[in-house]
């Protein structure tokens, strides 16, 4: 049974369609990334799931009920994009307030402060917090009450690389406990290892919904190989392998995923002439650009 199921969900503001017939589902323990440029409909989609805005057409089933139902709200964690907590409160006061709203013991708020690494700053006013610390408060409140489903809207914006890493560790732990996590992001590179599935939205339409390996396979984008020559052999290598010489000592080659091993063999046979080989797989950025341009039928 899916925790979250969307069927042909559409949102229109007047004549503007921000979300267009989007369907997907989310199972327990899954970490799913929602990708899309600004205005692609990620935030609107999350707001519809939470019942914060109405659905123009289609249907959303969240935790066996409808969006906005208090039973669903009790078991859902949400981190809005750019939320600014009241600066006059301390982190602990703010988090304990949210714990009370979810009817869980306030000691849970203290535990969560510890978990997101805010223990030392817990009794300082939020006004004095850095952007990253505010984002941690936001994450901590989304985890209150062991939610079955967590929706995070741009959770890593404003976080430094170390904090991002810690953030994805928490997401990983959550998924391990059976929580389904849906997060939206523009920061593509960090999603490579930290999500089970990627959903790409483009102009309100769902253009891809698959795990990363399948997305790579289906896109049939070329893999790049960078070959470094030992000495003055770059031209020879370029001629031999049909690549493009990029500077005096290296050559760039491209091939499809399934031709890669054969090409590597060919390079190895060149022996002494080759100093080094780098295989550059298709990046998430390239995939994202590829699918953003495509129509839903291409996937």
């Amino acid at each position: 049974m899916s925790l979250l199921k969307l069927e042909k969900v559409t949102k229109q503001y007047g004549s503007l369609t921000t979300v267009n017939e989007v369907s997907f589902s989310l199972e327990a323990g899954q970490r799913v990334a929602l990708l899309g440029h600004n205005g692609a409909g990620k935030t609107t989609l999350m707001r519809m799931m939470l019942g914060l805005t109405t659905i123009t057409s289609g249907h959303i089933d969240i935790l066996d009920t409808v969006p906005g139902d208090s039973q669903a709200r009790r078991q859902t964690g949400y981190l809005p994009e750019n939320v600014a907590f009241h600066g006059a409160l301390t982190g602990r006061e703010q988090l304990r307030h949210f714990a009370r709203l979810k009817s869980v013991p306030v000691t849970m708020a203290d535990d969560l402060l510890h978990r997101v690494g805010l223990n030392d700053a817990a009794d300082r006013r939020i006004r004095t917090y850095s952007k990253g610390m505010r984002q941690r408060i936001g994450l901590a409140q989304a985890l209150i009450g062991q939610p079955k489903l967590v929706l995070l809207d741009e959770p890593t914006s404003g976080l430094d690389p170390v904090s991002r890493h810690e953030f994805y560790e928490i997401v990983h732990e959550l998924a391990g406990e059976g929580t389904a996590v849906l997060l939206s992001s523009h920061a593509l590179s960090e999603l490579e290892t930290s999500t089970d599935r990627i959903i790409i939205l483009s102009q309100g339409r769902l253009v891809a919904n698959n795990d990363l390996a399948s997305l790579r396979r289906n896109a049939r984008l070329p893999v790049r190989l960078n070959v470094t020559a030992t000495a003055n052999t770059a031209d020879q290598i370029a001629a031999e392998l049909g690549g493009q010489r990029v500077n005096c000592s290296s050559v760039e080659l491209t091939c499809q995923q399934d031709e890669k091993v054969a090409l590597l063999g060919q390079i190895t046979r060149l022996g002494e002439a080759v100093k080094d080989v780098n295989v550059i797989p298709v990046s998430l950025e390239e995939l994202y650009r590829h699918y953003s341009k495509s129509t839903p039928e291409d996937q």
């Binding site: 939470l50 914060l52 709203l101 979810k102």
Partner: peptide, 13 residues
């Protein structure tokens, strides 16, 4: 404006 209203309304409230 601060976004806390959306957050509050995502709670059982």
């Amino acid at each position: 404006e601060r976004g806390t209203l959306a957050l509050s309304l995502s709670y059982p409230l």
